[in-house]
């Protein structure tokens, strides 16, 4: 049976992006944080989402290939400002 004010781990997992984006209302935010205090599983899950974001941010940008760069420059030179 679910408790009156309880938030479950399954719910925390569903709310994790809203929590990180800071769009939860004050009550929901409090309930999530209250849950994180005692729940190692959800603390780990939250950390892993943060780690995932951090690692995703390390994907290297690919350079614009020279051929495309040449085409862009050609397009620029063809263009005449109005």
């Amino acid at each position: 049976m679910r408790l009156d004010r309880e938030i479950t781990c399954a719910q925390v997992v569903d709310l994790v992006t809203a929590y990180l984006e800071d769009v939860l209302d004050a009550d929901d935010r409090e309930r999530v944080e209250e849950h994180l205090v005692f729940c190692d599983g959800c603390s780990t899950y939250l950390d892993q989402i943060r780690q995932t974001i951090a690692v995703t941010g390390r994907l290297e940008p690919e350079d614009i290939p020279p051929a495309l760069q040449d085409k862009l420059l050609a397009a620029f030179r063809e263009w005449s400002p109005a």
Partner: peptide, 27 residues
């Protein structure tokens, strides 16, 4: 479905329904 496979959470007939049955392990 949910973000995580449903069978990773405990069922309604347990003492902690909706809580982790198989919590994630720290990386």
């Amino acid at each position: 479905g949910g973000a995580v496979d449903a069978d990773r959470f405990l069922g309604d007939d347990t003492r902690f329904p909706g809580h982790w049955a198989a919590p994630p392990q720290r990386w």
